[in-house]
Design a protein around this nucleic acid. Structure first.
Lengths: 204, 204
DNA sequence: GGCCCCTGTCAACGCCCGTAGAATGAATGG
DNA sequence: CCATTCATTCTACGGGCGTTGACAGGGGCC
């Protein structure tokens, strides 16, 4: 304990090993999705035995839970304008370097119902927060659309690697998305025709 | 062959069985993705033996290929305005009833590299066509963004089943998307600052 | 300093997968 | 009417998976 470069204590070693496993798990879940990521592969990547992974995390599901856990980044409460900009910022950040954990969730929740549930639950507060800043009756739907656009862009850039989107600079993408976000966050009502019959009663 | 309601001939029977297998395969691939869909499950759903599926399609990959094959719907060539509306129409159609084949591809290409390649290849002409109608130098990127938004909305509605988006009426969604599509298809340039340095030379 | 705990390995289990090949039996064609 | 084709089933194999439990051995506490 006197020399920090000496052989680590057992507790440290354990935490270190666990962290290594989680890092590799994140990486593999992000690359391969839930099904194709095997405990054995994670163990191999982390340089340990598969039994140890089980011993520490119990089940593959649990391992995924722990690997995919990530804090939702904070969104400032504010006007719809500010909200749109904040969202754009968050997209920009993810376009620069998408953390593996986020990709792991995104990829896995498309094949794993539990992952989808977990993600939905985790994102709900943020979604509500977004909706709260939008001053229209269909705020929730708009928040969902904003979320869908973000996901679409991330998926297309990182998971499908579509041509231009995979290479374009974040600024360019953000600049193109800005009017969309601003419109969705602030535009009063869709009114190609001022026909209120498409709207239900205001009970909702 | 004299009586059409009589027991079908062997060739008919065969085609019928193949079609039944393909239908069930599409359904399962769409619901479960590539990995979790098993030959045995497809066979069971189609009321045949797994060996028969192999006998007809050779490999699981081949079965997926055949099941996921679908014609890209035509887009009219026209002005950027018309293009945006056509795209919205196509989204609307998919929001009313998403064909299983499309979902199968969408879901599977997120876990199966081959499926992603196939899809990218299949969508490329359409993407180019969209880009051709957009009168800006970054037309391709805009086309990609439009595609990303479409995918995001479909994924969020059908694969993740996010709250409002899963239930909202297609018209409501389309009305909200319209300004986004119009902006992306027609707005001359993103110009928070009129700095041309972000653009490369026109050699490309 | 001795006991125990805790990190880590190893071998094995039962399951389900994709796939192969022989067997079956009815429709087909000469 | 018999030989053949062919749609279909049955059985089985090899492999990889998640998971388990026994075992080792060095560190940490009293």
């Amino acid at each position: 304990m006197t020399d920090p470069s000496a052989r680590p204590t057992r507790a440290q070693q354990r935490r270190q090993t666990e962290a290594r496993i989680l890092t590799e798990a994140r990486q593999l879940f992000a690359e391969l999705g839930y099904e194709r990521t095997t405990i054995r592969a994670v163990a191999r990547a982390a340089g340990v035995d598969a039994g140890l992974v089980m011993h520490y995390f119990g089940t593959k599901d649990e391992l995924f839970s722990r690997a995919a856990m990530l804090p939702a980044d904070e969104l400032p409460t504010g006007s719809a304008d500010q909200l749109a900009e904040a969202l754009l910022d968050s997209v920009a950040k993810r376009l620069v370097s998408e953390p593996a954990a986020s990709l792991a969730v995104l990829r896995s929740m498309l094949t794993n119902a539990d992952a989808a549930d977990r993600y939905r639950a985790a994102g709900q507060p943020q979604l509500s927060q977004i909706a709260a800043a939008i001053p229209t009756p269909d705020a929730e739907l708009r928040a969902n659309l904003l979320s869908a656009i973000v996901h679409g862009v991330i998926i297309e850039r990182y998971l499908l690697r579509f041509g231009q989107l995979a290479d374009a600079s974040p600024e360019q993408i953000i600049d193109l998305l800005r009017p969309c976000f601003q419109t969705l966050a602030t535009m009063p009502a869709p009114s190609s025709t001022d026909d209120p019959s498409t709207d239900g009663p205001s009970t909702d």
